[in-house]
């Protein structure tokens, strides 16, 4: 390639040295962010002696001993299932309730701006202020230590989140195409299903993933509202930290297990969000 060609490829004002320096800085920053995660990942796969070694032994043999401990000995599987039930139920219900509400607000100005702000009121309180009354109500109703209570408590915040994020998304989709569908023979529901939903899928999917992650990772409400029956994964992980010390190997294995679905979803969400809305139906 000619020198002129190289000059064209490189943005104005960038030199080879500058590019190297910026890459070094980026790598260093990335390492700072990723190091705790890498450390957790490494600790999850080494035995209990190597786990505590400082400085760490870089060629320590890999083992699944810690995963055996949490899944077989400590029997964490029911807690993971609880977490999955809660996260999936909350996500499904939040979308079922939130998406139509968001549509109504976006298209019909339902409630106006007071409703939009009102949706955020629940988020304005510190969670601890909310969780104690919820616990007392649940106990009085005989619903303490149930997944239902946790699902309802999570819904309160997740529905608001779903509405808030989808109002913006629906508003960004021009309503002309829906109106064209109405004239082309659709009723309102058909226009939504056949014309709006296909365009809104990336936004709905993103809201679903974030709602899932919020419920899957939540700790404070789960700690107070659940007991032996309904304990979720994050609360179970916390039980590995006891007065006798931290079981660092099993804890890291559990953290790896809890981060995995989140990380997978994050990759998916990125693909969806990058793809964006397939605009072009209207002038542009």
């Amino acid at each position: 390639m000619s020198a002129a060609g190289l000059a064209v490829e490189r943005p104005v004002g960038h030199t080879r040295l500058g590019s190297l320096a910026s890459h070094l800085l980026l790598i260093a920053t990335t390492l700072v962010v990723l190091l705790p995660l890498l450390w957790v990942l490494r600790t999850a796969f080494v035995d209990r002696y190597d786990a505590y070694l400082i400085p760490p032994k870089l060629d320590a043999p890999l083992t699944l001993e810690n995963f055996h401990q949490i899944f077989v000995v400590d029997e964490f599987t029911p807690y993971i299932i609880n977490s999955l039930i809660v996260a999936i139920s909350v996500t499904a219900l939040a979308l079922l309730l939130g998406a139509p509400a968001a549509y109504a607000i976006a298209r019909y100005r339902t409630g106006g701006s007071p409703l939009r702000i009102g949706l955020l009121i629940g988020q304005m309180f510190p969670p601890i202020v909310l969780v104690i009354p919820i616990f007392l109500i649940a106990r009085d109703l005989g619903m303490d230590d149930t997944l239902t209570t946790l699902i309802i408590a999570y819904l309160a915040s997740n529905v608001a989140f779903v509405i808030w994020s989808l109002v913006g998304y629906f508003s960004s989709i021009p309503k002309d195409a829906e109106e064209a569908a109405l004239i082309d023979g659709c009723n309102r529901l058909q226009a939504i299903r056949r014309v709006l939903l296909p365009q809104a899928l990336p936004g709905i999917f993103a809201a679903a993933v974030i709602s899932f992650i919020l419920s899957w990772n939540e700790f404070l409400f789960a700690l107070i509202l659940t007991g032996n029956v309904s304990r979720t994964f994050p609360v179970a992980i916390a039980s590995l930290v006891s007065s006798r010390g931290v079981q660092i190997g099993p804890t890291c294995a559990a953290v790896t297990a809890i981060v995995l679905p989140t990380a997978l979803f994050a990759l998916l969400i990125k693909r969806f969000l990058v793809r964006g809305i397939a605009l072009g139906g209207v002038k542009g």
Binding site: A180, A278, L279, G281
Partner: peptide
């Protein structure tokens, strides 16, 4: 009557094509 029962066709300023 709702739009679908009027047997009219409309061309929008923005064209309003179905993008998908």
């Amino acid at each position: 009557a709702p739009p679908k029962d009027r047997d009219v066709a409309m061309v929008f300023q923005s064209y309003a094509l179905y993008p998908h």
